[in-house]
Structure formats: structure tokens, C-alpha cells
Amino acid sequence: MSLNKIDLPPRLIAQLYPRSLMPDNSITVAAEIVAEAPDIETASKQPPVEESSGTGTTTEWKSLGGNQKNIMVIVDYTTDLHLPDPAFTFLSQILNACKLGPNDVVIINRNNYPHTPYEQLLDHFTGKVVLLFGTTAAAFGFPFEIPPYQVQTFAGYTVMHAPALDALKDDKPAKTQLWSSFKKIFNL
């Protein structure tokens, strides 16, 4: 292994550089990642916390990213709080190719919100682009289904779904189709 080529997991990078790699407004996100990292195994198996108030139930929202460009990345991982490191690394590479960073999107693990209606997720996270990985449009809650990689407009949202990030990272034809969809969505 060369000193010029050392691969570090994203969580370790966030711990080493919590301030210098991100703009000032995303320091809280880095702090949350760092805080979760040591205890990720126990945290990843906990369901979303719902607190009861006098008027109803309040959901504790869990997500990654700053959502500066109103792009929602929906994943579905049952064993992770957000998504596994290899999937995050691959997603970061995809976003980088689109001239986007993790702070431009919000990453939401649908598994954390199994009973939350999709409308509530869209309202809370204010996304205009909804990228679904490992779940379909209908499974997410949209009242329609589309083939993988097809870009669909619905009620002011641009929607696209693809296989899980883990399945995509080593599948060259699938990555080509994904890139074609991203070129349409992001005008590349």
C-alpha cells in the first residue's frame, strides 16, 4: 500500500476533519456523524423515536446532509441507521460526478420511517428531486410506478428509482443507465 493511496471510511474522515471539509453551516451534521460513529451498531438497530405530545405524535427526524439543493436521496437499509460506508462512498462518487456534494442532498433511510406517509417526508425535507435507491416509487408511497432509471415528474417533484447502491456500484450497465438519468435530472 502506498502512502499516496490510503482509503479511509467516510466516518473516519468526518472524525478527522469535522470543520475543514464542510462549510460552517454543516458543522452540526459532521458533529452528528462523529457522535454516532462509535456506537453505530446499537444505534442502527433502534427504530425511529416517536414522542407523544398533548396534540399527537412527533417524529424524531434522522438524516444526513444539508439539503442545500433540495435533493432527497431515499435509501432502504434495515441494518444501518443511514447507509453502510461502501454505499455512502459510492453515492459520494456519483454526486461528485454531478458536481454535487453530500451537503447538497439529504439522505434518508426509509427503514427509519416505516409508517410515515411519503407526503410527510416530502414536506419535512422539502425536496424537489427524489432519488430512490433500493425502493420503487410505489413502495415509497407515490401513487404510480415507473421502470427503473425512468425520470418522472409528479406534483412538482422529479422522481427516479434505481436498485440499491450496493447493487449498482459493481454493475457497469446499471451505472450507465443511472448516469443517463442523472444527465436528464441535473442537465449535465
Rank of each mutant, 00 (worst) to 15 (best):
S2W: 09
L3M: 15
N4A: 09
N4G: 12
K5P: 12
I6F: 11
D7P: 14
D7M: 15
P9G: 13
R11C: 11
R11T: 05
Q15M: 06
S20H: 07
P23V: 05
P23E: 04
D24S: 14
D24I: 15
I27D: 02
T28E: 09
A30S: 12
A35P: 05
A37N: 11
P38V: 02
I40A: 15
I40L: 15
T42K: 06
A43I: 15
Q46M: 14
P47M: 05
V49A: 05
S52I: 01
G54L: 14
G54Y: 03
T57C: 05
T57W: 10
E60A: 06
E60D: 01
K62A: 05
K62T: 00
K69Q: 02
V73I: 12
D76R: 13
T78C: 12
T79C: 08
T79F: 02
D80T: 07
P86T: 10
F90N: 01
N96V: 00
N96C: 05
K99N: 15
G101F: 00
N103E: 14
D104K: 04
V105E: 11
N109H: 07
R110H: 13
R110A: 11
N111W: 12
P114R: 07
P114L: 01
H115I: 12
Y118I: 07
E119W: 01
Q120S: 06
Q120N: 10
L122G: 01
D123C: 00
F125P: 00
T126N: 06
V130T: 09
V130R: 09
L132H: 05
T135S: 09
A138C: 10
A139D: 04
A139I: 00
F140M: 02
F140L: 07
G141F: 00
G141S: 00
F142P: 00
F142S: 00
P143G: 02
E145I: 05
P148D: 03
Y149V: 06
Q150R: 13
Q150M: 04
V151Y: 03
V151G: 08
Q152F: 11
Q152L: 14
T153M: 10
F154T: 09
M160Y: 02
A162T: 05
A162R: 04
A162Q: 07
D166G: 08
A167K: 10
K169M: 15
A174K: 01
A174L: 03
T176V: 10
Q177F: 15
S181F: 06
